[in-house]
Simulated assay, not measured.
Amino acid sequence: MLKLTRLLLMLVLACCTAPAIAEDDDGLQCVPYARQVSGIQIYGDAHTWWGQAAGRYERGSVPQVGAVMAFRPHGIMTLGHVAAVSKIVDSRTVLIRHSNWSTINGRRGQIEDDVAVVDVSQANDWSEVRVWYTPIGGLGTTHYPLAGFIYKGKAPKQPKRIERPLFQVAAAAPAPRRPKPLAPTPAAAPAPRADPIGDLISSLGS
């Protein structure tokens, strides 16, 4: 009976001393950290944030300090990823704050503040990026697709998108001019045929 009482007491103490917000074995996930540092109140898996933001928050393709950078699922990153922009370095580089990206000291779920993300899209529209990866001390080689940026306040001015038709019909080339027909060459007069019999008769009659 005494052992049972002690066991129950230990369970009660364990429950009372547990953290208010439990974390899983991977540590702090990207979603609660992005929500905390950006103030954007969206819940659910990272890949759902872009769709959830429609009608609630302004969205766009231009980075802004405080905006959430929303990653699309890619490869083994099936749930997507979210991060908060902390600084604009130039038109191709920003710093972000995020969690559960790099493996640090053998553990996932680590917070990283002010690490680089570089736009590697051909159109400089932030549709594809490379992200700092701490274990190698530099940018990773993978190109990750972005859905865009979610803004807590007013969105910055967005570039105009040029809508191009899926199929572009080339203008018809002008038909080649037909050469004017050449005037017919007048036929040469037929050469008189030799008539030795007629010549002989003519000479006899003279």
Rank of each mutant, 00 (worst) to 15 (best):
A147R: 06
G66K: 04
Q52H: 06
I197R: 10
T48L: 15
Q52Y: 05
A18R: 11
H74T: 01
P19I: 06
D114H: 13
W49D: 00
A67G: 10
L79T: 07
K157Y: 10
P63F: 00
A18W: 12
A187S: 12
R177A: 09
V62T: 11
K180V: 04
P190N: 09
D26E: 11
K87S: 10
N124H: 10
E128K: 13
A147G: 00
L9C: 05
A84W: 05
N105C: 08
Q52L: 02
H81G: 10
E23V: 03
A70D: 14
A67M: 09
T142L: 08
D119C: 07
R177G: 07
P145F: 06
Q52R: 15
K154E: 12
K160S: 12
N100T: 05
A175C: 02
P190I: 08
P19H: 05
A173N: 15
E112G: 10
V118P: 03
Y151E: 02
T134V: 15
I162D: 01
Q110T: 04
V120H: 01
A191N: 05
S127C: 04
V89W: 04
Q168I: 12
V65Q: 06
P196D: 06
G140D: 06
H74R: 02
A84G: 05
A171Q: 14
A155I: 04
A83K: 00
A170F: 02
A194M: 14
Y151I: 01
V120S: 02
V94R: 07
K180P: 03
L139P: 07
V89E: 12
A175H: 09
R92W: 02
I197Q: 10
T78G: 07
N105W: 14
Y57H: 06
A147V: 00
T142V: 13
R6V: 14
T185L: 09
T93C: 02
P184T: 01
T93V: 04
W132E: 06
A188Q: 11
G44S: 07
R108H: 14
Q52V: 00
G39Y: 12
R193K: 15
Y33F: 13
E112T: 09
P184A: 00
I40C: 11
R108M: 15
V131M: 15
S91D: 14
Y33W: 08
R108A: 13
L4D: 06
A54K: 09
I201L: 04
A191L: 09
A170V: 04
L182Y: 08
I150G: 06
R92Q: 03
V118Y: 03
L139Q: 08
I21A: 10
P181I: 02
A70G: 03
D195N: 14
Q168V: 10
P145S: 02
G27C: 06
A46Y: 13
A70R: 07
G148I: 01
A173W: 15
K160H: 09
A46H: 10
A20E: 13
S203L: 10
L8G: 11
G55S: 03
D26M: 15
S121N: 01
T78I: 13
A183L: 11
A53Q: 15
V131T: 15
L28P: 07
I40A: 06
S86R: 07
A175Q: 14
W49Q: 00
G106V: 02
A67R: 14
V62D: 03
L182C: 05
R72T: 07
Y133E: 01
F71Q: 03
L182S: 11
A83L: 01
R35C: 01
G66Q: 05
G60A: 09
A171H: 10
P176Q: 11
